[in-house]
Design a protein around this nucleic acid. Sequence first.
DNA 1: TTGAAAGCGCTAACAG
DNA 2: CTGTTAGCGCTTTCAA
Lengths: 342, 342
Amino acid sequence: MTDRPRQAVRTPTLEDVARVAGVSRATVSRVINGVDTVDLALREVVREAVAATGYTPNRAARSLVTKRTGSIALVVSGADSSSDQVFGDPFFGRVTGGVVRYLRTLGIHPALLLADSDQARAQAVSFVGQGNADGALLVSIHPADPLPRLFVQKGLPAVLFARPSEPVPVSYVDLAHENGAALAADHLVARGCRHVASIAGPADLPAAQDRLAGFRQAMARHGRPYVLVAEGNFTVESGEEAMQHLLDTAPGIDGVFAANDLMALGALRVLRQHGRRVPRDVAVIGFDDSSPAESAGLTTVAQPIEEMAAEMARLLLRHIEDPSGPPTSVIFDPVLVVRDTA
Amino acid sequence: MTDRPRQAVRTPTLEDVARVAGVSRATVSRVINGVDTVDLALREVVREAVAATGYTPNRAARSLVTKRTGSIALVVSGADSSSDQVFGDPFFGRVTGGVVRYLRTLGIHPALLLADSDQARAQAVSFVGQGNADGALLVSIHPADPLPRLFVQKGLPAVLFARPSEPVPVSYVDLAHENGAALAADHLVARGCRHVASIAGPADLPAAQDRLAGFRQAMARHGRPYVLVAEGNFTVESGEEAMQHLLDTAPGIDGVFAANDLMALGALRVLRQHGRRVPRDVAVIGFDDSSPAESAGLTTVAQPIEEMAAEMARLLLRHIEDPSGPPTSVIFDPVLVVRDTA
DNA sequence: TTGAAAGCGCTAACAG
DNA sequence: CTGTTAGCGCTTTCAA
């Protein structure tokens, strides 16, 4: 209690630990970094010294010599225009939550960037290019986002959420969209639906195409090679129009699979306007398990977003660890969430 | 085209710039950092050398000597339990967006932390305590969050969104809740409402209290010193119950101000169940301008969240710049968004 | 006004 | 297996 340091408490350094432990700085460094060529006894001594001094590595100093920052960037890439509310989007929210929760177990906290213009994209690239982060997690709303390519071209470690629409040699996590659609198909058939249709998403979206293909294949397996399809653009309105069109074409429809929840919700509305009871007359299944789906009681196909986000981070860390490793993709299986509409 | 460097392109350092400019490292450093004791001519020479080399400061090296990181933490502090979806919350989304957009103009990208447990809070504190960030932006869902105090106790720069429920000597931005409530009161009165009631928020929430007080005061100014009040807890259900209670007590009600949108939505539902037409029979105003309010066409009081977020960042940066400055608060004025319900 | 030199705290050869 | 030594790239006295 008598000999406090004269000045404001100086953060302990390696030097201090070394002195307390009676070894050299290098040895302490080795112990800290888990190099296993250190005598077991010394290891213990050092550990105690670390505890005694309350030492924590200085990241700047370490970073200066290792050329690594130990942190990563989470780049959220909305559409260039309507990106006003990107961060409020529950999808981004869940991805972000998954990433943050996983990374903090490793003591790392991602830097958040928004890439909603060419300038912002350039900024994001140079942010990690200049070594402010060791790599980037890229979460785009648009599969044709130019950002992935920019990172790959500079040789910067990056991992995407969802396969890009144009092939880029980069790691990503994605959903087995076909399987999700198959889940919906199986459920509809099991319910006894005999006249099943699908509201598909935009043709330029890989995910939308996969969902449609998966649905068709599954229906074919059930002996229904032909499926009536109307195309929407993932909005509620387009879902309404598509449903209207479907009804005009085939009034006897008793099952609908929409490629996303919003369109399913639109379909629901039109169906009810036409006096169809859901699910009794017509069963409806969406995709995404978004929050409107939940509040509307929509049966839907869910993706394990948080797990996918964590895996994304894991992949990136591995890439940073071993930059020569090949691009990898990890595909997750969806789950059917049965609620009131099917 | 002939003399490329033999190895992978080395990032240019101060040394390189100095050589090109024909001056010392120190001079370049001075120019970079805007020290104005440098000869104008030299200044120009250095600038050209910087441009020629494509130099960018190495943050780790700079940080090592200045003891500053040049980055800040954005700590999102949900309730300890139900924080599953914090990042999906549109409120956090807007705050985050505002912060990110403002900071990126300064080339800084916040590290995102989630403080949803004592351990996570400790981690957040030590993250900035150990110099991984120069300060923290604290966005709590709960005004009694212990986090602000933890930061203040350690003397770490922090700025809050919203005044804490217990006084803590810390800077914050907040809304003039009273004024917002007054806006609602004025609007109701101007519409001709004669029997006005309010659904208040939880009594332990400063904001809720301010809203109620502001509403009462404004009504008093309009010669209506007495206002019927029912208390809710900011959920839709509590809004329903409160409205039911209000209707039981005073069936002649023709105007309702709810302390948040969710309760207003609940009120709306009950009102309609009872055959009241809105806004003809009863006018309803909410608070927050949340997205459900928008989709429901609810008239509501909006806060300029993005601007508040930007100001929060500005305050923090100023604090980091001058740690001796006193805590400051900046209060923003709300705006009435008139939609269909009043 | 400018340069030389020290040193921030750490890791990584390289000897021993 | 351990210690010595040399920097990583930058800012900042201190002299000149």
